[in-house]
């Protein structure tokens, strides 16, 4: 049984609870043992670092030190979390800086030694679980579905922190998953762009124009739904979709799935258990299409 230090992130336990429950449901089917880091802190999401980058680095060094101490690979289920963790890991390769940061971990009896390679569930599916295993568990191929990937920035940029060269599957991980599960990928310009969520409270107009533009583009190219590894993108694309439609003055009705929801559907898990009934944009039509 493969075992992971599991950082669920804040939103999966808040505004996107269906991500958390669907992750656990899928992990169980795949035989993944997830040890949740209950004492860990929010990554800061790049927002703590707006004013306190050092503090954010300490918090993330601590989380990674916890995984290191358990001698387990670190699994994130959020593009933002994995991106922020990886950026911290990159900075903490600087030995002098790591020593400085570790001083704040010493009172807790832990130390970050610089060995953690934070990864997203999406990558782990392709890199550890493997196509064969996933294939063997598919009971409901998603052949009827046209799906648009929506990555979320930090899982595709900056490339220097993501080790794409050593792990080429990461470059188009979503497309690969979509195709493994039998669905068809809808490619569109917006799929690697920003959903707009980070500036929702600062500049709602800009934020929702971004979300709306990408949704409209994918929808007009025939996508039945988008699938995203980032719960923050999910918030702007799903929960804000009615407002985004108003901002861009178009009709939008595009369900947004989390990665484990999509996988769970293909593995025959009940939509209810995957939290698919808890979305703002109704998923019924999508579920009907695959007979779920």
């Amino acid at each position: 049984m493969s075992k992971y230090a599991f950082w669920p992130g804040c939103v999966a336990q808040g505004a996107a609870p269906e991500l958390y429950t669907s992750t656990l449901a899928v992990a169980e089917k795949l035989g993944m043992d997830l040890v949740e880091l209950e004492a860990a802190a929010c990554t800061g999401a790049g927002i703590i670092s707006d004013g306190e980058p050092y503090l954010q680095d300490v918090l993330n060094a601590r989380t990674m030190a916890m995984a290191e101490q358990m001698d387990l690979p670190l699994m994130d289920i959020c593009s933002t979390c994995v991106g922020v963790h990886r950026l911290a890991a990159e900075k903490l390769r600087e030995v002098d800086y790591r020593i400085r940061i570790n001083a704040h971990l010493a009172p807790e009896g832990i130390e970050y030694r610089g060995s953690v390679d934070p990864r997203h569930l999406l990558w782990i599916l392709l890199e550890d679980v493997g196509i064969d295993k996933i294939n063997s568990l598919i009971t409901r191929p998603l052949e009827e579905l046209n799906l648009g990937p929506f990555y979320g920035c930090y899982i595709v940029r900056p490339e220097r922190t993501l080790d794409f060269d050593a792990n080429p599957t990461r470059r188009n991980s979503l497309e690969q998953l979509i195709e493994i599960l039998g669905a068809t990928t809808v490619t569109y310009d917006g799929m690697t762009k920003c959903c707009g969520f980070p500036i929702l409270t600062m500049n709602k107009q800009n934020s929702l124009t971004m979300a709306g533009t990408h949704l409209e583009e994918a929808q007009s190219l025939g996508a039945d739904a988008l699938v995203t590894p980032c719960p923050l993108c999910h918030l702007n694309l799903d929960a804000q979709q009615p407002d985004a439609a108003k901002v861009i003055d178009r009709n939008l009705n595009l369900p947004i799935l989390h990665v484990p929801q999509l996988l769970g559907l293909a593995m025959g898990i009940e939509p209810e258990k995957l939290g698919l009934t808890r979305h703002v944009v109704d998923t019924n039509r999508l579920l009907n299409k695959i007979g779920a």
Binding site: C10, V11, Q13, G14, A15, A39, A40, A41, C42, G44, A45, I47, I48, D50, G51, E52, L55, L59, T201, M202, N203
Partner: peptide, 30 residues
């Protein structure tokens, strides 16, 4: 400005509970 308020609200939530406080953040951002 909204950005600073958002940062401060976000950070104070994490300080209190270790996690993002989605309940309070909108009020703090405004």
């Amino acid at each position: 400005n909204h950005g600073t308020r958002h940062h401060k609200g976000f950070t104070s939530g994490v300080r209190k509970r270790g996690r993002l406080d989605e309940m309070m953040l909108p009020v703090q951002s405004v």
